[in-house]
Design a protein around this nucleic acid. Structure first.
Lengths: 283, 283
DNA sequence: GGAAATATTTTCGGTATGCGAAAAAAGGAC
DNA sequence: GTCCTTTTTTCGCATACCGAAAATATTTCC
């Protein structure tokens, strides 16, 4: 129970064998535990019993219970009968980040523009460990399910945004990404072979864009390009996506790539006026 | 440092004098501390130094530092030079709530409809302690600054949503809300007198709607109505808002109230098909 | 530039605090 | 009714967290 899932991509060069995460020795276990319980709620498990939670996070029922009681007292978790669930207050945490970083003001206008021009959907995402996190999103009405909601988190390797972001890593960082990577397929088309993924990422580096078809889920086809800081570092990625069948990869490249790139560079340009946002988004 | 801001409106009938929050005796202090540090980041303080944070939350620098180190290891907090800030991963926590509760699917269509009809903006909010939390929002081309972003948290007394939600409390709960309440004005028009606020809320109870002008911030005029469960309990509130000058309270009441109420009842109706959402949103 | 003030990091010993095992109590299944 | 699972409580132990204070670094201001 002493190993933390935090992989700390950037910290510790960690040459080879000893792959222990080398946690900083001042570390509040109880805090990490409580947060990992918050993390354990997801789309697949919106409400769970105590024992389910304890099993999922790997703590004793007693410990899980203590954390849950605390989280309930704080208003982040609720309980109906024997099942626990997150409460709306959890969203207030993210709002602190959200508009402190002025994400909406800076990004939404550009996303709206893209969606107005091409329809479908457009998102901006950033890399967090091995996942891509969507920090802004815009889409046309098109209900069905909201595939990408702000704050959504998906394996980087299975999304166009993620592959562009991975392509933007240094070789060393990329090596660390692949170190011990196991990809579980989300669709039958998901690339699961690390070697193949690496080739794909090298290709993205050459092309400067990435397309994915049915990688994250069936029906999603997307095209992404990097958003680069002045120094060339990839700090985020921008995509446009539609439903497979309505669009395909070649269509996106032919019709949307130039405008997507132009928008990415406009965003990059706008970001120079928000240095804090850059430092927050970039690791 | 032993009193927690959690007021626990629902727990403990607490007849009179003894107003100690009566925290459950199993309570993980370290977890609460760490989370209160996450909470300390807001629009006014997007990045802070260690000592600023320690002062703001009232812990020793050493303790604050331990929590921050932990939160950094977990990826929720970052640091540039001497200043700490939230990282995008914080949004992933809320996404667990957000689409686990299927909020988008259920609420957005109705909000879109309202915005399509009236323009301006429309939101759904719920009560959390003394604050209203925006759980869904839709607006036309985001003018000026993004006033209400999902997850935003404002004093209930200063918003139309909040007053409707307060009006939906039982007398006992309302008493507890007012107990020790101090309202700090956000504009020169903000109601700060508890007696006056209570009268206003009584009026909202009679009317079944609430209007606010320049209460939360200059330029915001809003009209809100309750969303009621089958048993009559107010579980959320729905509003429509525009810029003062473009619209005024009477205009909203005359032109939008009927449709707003109709939408509220359509939402209430839709919610019956999502019992979990009701139990999550309702306290 | 140097001195004073402030902020950050580290150390350290004590104790409150969180820990898990195990027992007790409460539900559920059949 | 009995068995099995889950939840809650108890309890003694170990340690993880604590704050004060010293040591170091950084900033401020003259």
């Amino acid at each position: 129970m002493t190993d933390h899932p935090s992989a700390n991509l950037q910290i510790s060069a960690a040459p080879g064998g000893d792959s222990k995460p080398a946690k900083p020795d001042e570390f509040v276990e109880a805090l990490a535990k409580g947060i990992s319980i918050l993390e354990s709620f997801d789309a697949a498990n919106p409400e769970m019993t105590l024992s389910e939670i304890a099993r999922k996070v790997g703590y004793s029922p007693a410990a899980a219970r203590r954390s849950l009681i605390t989280l309930m007292a704080l208003g982040y978790v609720g309980q109906t009968n024997k099942r626990f669930h997150l409460r709306p207050k959890i969203m207030a945490l993210s709002s602190g980040f959200y508009y402190s970083a002025q994400i909406d003001e800076v990004l939404q206008p550009h996303l709206r523009e893209l969606v107005a021009k091409f329809g479908d959907a457009s998102s901006v995402g950033t890399l967090e460990q091995r996942d891509v996190i969507y920090i802004a999103h815009n889409s046309v009405q098109r209900a069905r399910r909201a595939a990408a909601v702000v704050g959504a988190r998906y394996p980087a390797c299975a999304t166009s945004l993620g592959r562009v972001l991975l392509a933007g890593l240094s070789d060393g960082e990329l090596d660390r990404y692949f170190d011990g990577l196991v990809i579980e397929p989300l669709t039958s088309k998901t690339i699961v072979d690390p070697v193949q993924l690496r080739e794909e990422i090298e290709q993205v580096r050459r092309d400067g864009y990435s397309t994915t078809v049915d990688q994250l889920d069936y029906g999603i086809t997307a095209l992404a390009v990097p958003i680069r800081a002045l120094d060339g570092r990839t700090i985020a990625a921008l995509n446009t996506s539609g439903y497979s069948g309505m669009v395909d990869a070649d269509f996106l490249i032919a019709n949307r790539l130039p405008e997507l790139r132009a928008t990415a560079s406009r965003i990059a340009n706008a970001l120079t006026r928000y240095p804090m946002l850059v430092s927050i988004i970039g690791s």
